[in-house]
Amino acid sequence: MLEIHDLRKVYDGRGRHVEAIASVTLSVAAGELVCVVGPSGCGKTTLLRAVAGLLPVSGGEVAVDGRRVTGPPPGTAVVFQEYGRSLFPWMTVRQNVELPLKEKGLPAGRRRALVAGSLDAVGLADAADAHPWQLSGGMQQRVAIARAVAYEPKVLLMDEPFAAVDAQTRADLEDLILRLWRDLGMTVLFVTHDIDEAVYLGQRVVVLSASPTTVMEDLKIDLPAARDQLTTRSLPRFGELRGHVYRQIQRARAHHDDARGTP
């Protein structure tokens, strides 16, 4: 469903030549949930923006559903980290969710059903007529998720979506994503800096190196499919996987520092 082949990204500006992504090759099968982790500043967001077609690449290729990405691919939705800036503050929650559906040309009845269904799924059926700024951060991110889900995407891209919410809300939203993913059968690429979150959510965890980025490891998460905040996180295997990913990222960081000549 999602093919990234030898993706390269170089930022060239006024005498500065920054190689952000050296080479990333990665594929995500239809219906799979893959998490991408890496040390901070490793180009995770750059990778996701390239996949979303929001950023031109310097080399290599991204294909979604067999079609090469040159702009935002149809049937793809994104949930951004900055929930406060990704919702239109002048629209109500309902209007925010409905606008992409209008642009898609869906008839009014279908739109109403999708909006009601998705707001219900994220637990915000009562907040449809509120404005985003009247809601808490976690609720705003739920609206963004509802908007993505109502769009009926084949591929859902998430860019550190829960980095700015508190721990309890974060656990709730993680379970919400797992439920929606199972119910709707979307392909999900989930970028995060949180190792626990990656291991808890993913069927696979892709560990990136520090910039210039390559794939350090593509790890299969052999935890039971049914995940639960309490039991899954207390499994010995969860601890092993978590520790493994943690060591990998430490290694990436150390390697990066060596290359820069710092002790």
């Binding site: 979303a52 929001l54 702009g71 935002p72 939705a77 994104v78 990704s86 606008l99 642009e103 898609k104």
Partner: peptide, 8 residues
């Protein structure tokens, strides 16, 4: 970016 993603 949101507009671009959702074809607005």
């Amino acid at each position: 970016d949101t507009c671009r993603m959702y074809g607005i």
